[in-house]
């Protein structure tokens, strides 16, 4: 039957009962945002809190999708029920996107749930929708929930902030390790994967990473008790995948036994609250810009009777003068 006329509550009930179409529909609602998304959040946030959320990131062409496909198969073989949220960029010009990750995951067991997500341009949007999507999937019983991102920059930061464990994938011979360092990924990585380890230069890539980790160790990492392992993988041949899964499980155990999981979740909650507040405030500001009071302030700035800084302060602190 069609899901079109079901209420949010009915959809959530179905999703909790394992109805995949209902899960798919709820994810759309969460991605869209707004009041309905909040309703979904209200119903799902208390469920599935044990699910392990894994962020996987790295430069385009690093072979992440192929590795994720193999990883999903490894989790499925271990009787886990994984889900994947695969994020691809939207076109900045048209807002459209071609989402091709399912092709690379073609051989994944049909029991896994894969969702393709476009960044949809709006700033901070993923920071809201990705945690919400992970919540829906976890509530529906999927564990682990893998979030895979393509590209570099804010998207990665948003996604890693939503994860318990972050895996950074690099490839040999492309200066990936150096790029990852510049992008600040070394600080957030819990596990490194050198993919395409059959290619020449794989051991160089490993050495680069070790060197940079050595340096960042000196400057101080968040979790000084643990050095991120470096796992060599050949995704096409399927070699090293079990080691990645092992490293992920090991990291999870580490978080649990050292009470760092709670600290991570605290950080996740803080980041999500901040993102939601920031978006709400941005929208509020956008609305303000069209009021006559702000129009008057703009004239004052133009006339030189008020500085842009003081006008801005009045925008977010209406009582300041």
């Amino acid at each position: 039957m069609s899901l079109r006329h079901l209420s949010i509550d009915e959809l959530v009930d179905r999703a909790l009962g394992g109805d995949r179409r209902a899960v798919g529909r709820l994810l759309s609602i969460v991605e869209r945002g707004g009041a309905e998304a909040e309703q979904v959040e209200t119903r799902t946030h208390a469920h599935g809190t044990d699910a392990h959320v894994i962020g996987i990131t790295g430069a385009p062409g690093a072979g992440k999708s192929t590795m994720v496909a193999r990883l999903v198969a490894a989790f499925t073989a271990a009787s886990r029920g994984p889900a994947v949220v695969a994020v691809d960029p939207s076109s900045p010009l048209t807002g459209g996107a071609i989402l091709g990750d399912r092709v690379r995951m073609a051989e994944v067991d049909t029991s896994a749930f894969i969702r393709s997500v476009a960044t949809r341009g709006h700033s901070g949007g993923l920071a809201l929708s990705v945690p919400g999507s992970a919540r829906v999937l976890a509530a529906a019983g999927f564990d682990p929930v893998i979030i895979e991102t393509v590209g570099v920059g804010q998207v990665e930061v948003d996604v890693t902030a939503a994860a318990d464990t972050t895996v950074v994938v690099v490839t040999p011979g492309m200066g990936d390790a150096v790029q990852a360092n510049k992008a600040g990924l070394l600080e957030v990585a819990d596990i490194f994967v050198v993919n395409k380890a059959d290619l020449p230069g794989a051991s160089d890539a490993r050495r680069d990473l070790e060197l940079m980790l050595e340096l960042s160790h000196v400057t101080g990492q968040e979790d000084a008790s643990r050095r991120p392992p470096i796992v060599m993988v050949d995704s096409l041949a399927g070699e090293g995948i079990d080691a990645v899964r092992g490293a992920i499980d090991e990291h999870h155990d580490h978080l649990v036994t050292t009470d760092r999981l709670v600290e991570r979740r605290r950080r996740r909650a803080r980041y999500e609250m901040r993102s939601r507040a920031a978006l709400a405030f941005e929208r509020h500001l956008d609305d303000q810009l069209h009021t006559s009071e702000v129009a008057a302030m703009v004239e004052d700035v133009l006339a030189g009777s008020e500085t842009p800084s003081s006008a801005a302060r009045r925008l977010w602190q209406p009582d300041a003068s």
């Binding site: 939207s90 076109s91 048209t94 807002g95 459209g96 996107a97 071609i98 989402l99 091709g100 399912r102 092709v103 073609a106 393709s116 476009a118």
Partner: peptide, 11 residues
């Protein structure tokens, strides 16, 4: 895509 749609390409 250029008309603003999200295309899930299965190949």
């Amino acid at each position: 895509r250029d008309a603003g749609m999200e295309v899930i390409y299965l190949g």
